[in-house]
């Protein structure tokens, strides 16, 4: 394992690929390996790219990565696609749009299936980002599933979140999903070569005006619950970040420089206002909370037999126990084993 870690830190691509598999499959020893890599993370700027299917996320990644390469920055890419809930299989097809990046040793592309996660990323994506970060990439681009809803994971994972819209997806304002203003640091209207792009830009501008500034909120953890609070209402007001709207055409790189500049501006905004530490603290709180939830749940379930559970199921079915009583009872059964 020492070799594996050293090889990853030295930029060995096969080792990196192996480690990503290890993390995805939660193989024996993966946690120790992650722990060994963790001190070497924190260098990369992580950019999330989300938006409805077919808006051009992969094409944008392809264009952005090429521009970053021209600046001599190395680029790691994680592209997440959905796992079929029926078969557990997946077709991971984002590479098709990233053909220009294959021969470049400064780019590493990895496709991931959601494997049952619903928030637009897979359970292992956060760890995969850390592995790539330790691998020394300057920029990490994360393409989400693009279910167009509940893309909350990416906001809590990326430092800059780009929401991609495209014209022709429907009826302007109605087609634009509620909630994107809350998650977007940058709004991209891709396929600006198409008629209707102006309308999409217009619709987004209107939404921003209605929504700005008080409606810009941030999720925070409060008594273990995620809640929305208003941004920076306190005595020391930080200037608000208003998401810029950038039009792009991926085929000829129109707008890609402007997009990179917008990402730089966003990064500068975070750094100049000393927001990094607080943002990171907040994410760590959320991550620990989620992980704690997972571990406790697993422990609880491991401490109960199938028969015990079935017995309680039956008592609920026969109206002897109300479900919340049943839950307390399961926890009590567990507690007597002294595991919680």
């Amino acid at each position: 394992m020492k070799d594996l870690i050293q090889n990853i830190l030295n930029g060995n691509r096969r080792a990196l690929a192996r480690m990503l598999t290890m993390v995805e499959n939660e193989r024996e020893g993966y946690q120790q390996a992650l722990a060994a890599l963790f001190p070497h993370t924190g260098h990369a700027w992580v950019i999330g790219i989300t938006g409805a299917p077919g808006t051009g996320k992969s094409s944008l990644v392809n264009a952005l990565a090429q521009k970053y390469r021209q600046q001599d920055k190395t680029v790691g890419i994680l592209a997440v696609d959905p796992t079929s809930p029926f078969t557990g299989g997946a077709i991971l097809g984002d590479r098709i749009r990233m053909r220009d990046l294959y021969s470049d040793p400064g780019v590493f592309i990895r496709s991931m299936a959601t494997r049952g996660s619903l928030g637009g990323l897979s359970r292992a994506t956060r760890d995969a980002i850390r592995v790539m970060d330790a691998g020394g990439f300057d920029v990490i681009l994360v393409e989400t599933v693009g279910a167009g809803q509940s893309e909350v994971d990416i906001v809590r994972t990326a430092q800059t979140t780009i929401v991609v819209e495209a014209p022709g997806l429907g009826d302007d304002i109605q087609a634009i999903k509620a909630g994107i203003l809350e998650i977007a640091d940058i709004l991209v209207v891709n396929k600006a070569d198409r008629v209707g792009a102006k309308n999409t830009v217009q619709a987004l501008k209107m939404m921003l005006e209605i929504g700005h500034p008080a409606a810009r909120t941030q999720p925070v953890l409060h008594h273990g619950e995620l809640m929305q609070i208003e941004n920076h209402t306190s005595i020391n007001p930080t200037p608000l970040w208003i998401p810029p709207i950038i039009q792009t055409i991926t085929m000829d790189f129109t707008g890609i420089d402007a997009l990179i500049q917008a990402i730089e501006n966003h990064r500068a905004y975070i750094e100049q206002n000393h927001l990094s530490a607080e943002i990171e603290r907040e994410r760590i709180r959320i991550e620990l909370y989620e992980r704690l939830q997972n571990v406790l749940m697993t422990r609880l379930m491991n401490g109960l037999t199938q028969q015990q559970i079935e017995a309680v199921v039956e008592r609920v079915r026969t109206r002897e126990l109300e479900p919340s009583q049943a839950v307390m009872m399961l926890i009590d059964m567990h507690n007597t084993e002294g595991m919680l």
Partner: peptide, 14 residues
């Protein structure tokens, strides 16, 4: 598609 339906993760490059 058939391999996906068999539960494989298929990286499709075209």
């Amino acid at each position: 598609r058939a391999l996906r339906d068999a539960g494989f993760e298929v990286i499709y490059t075209g």
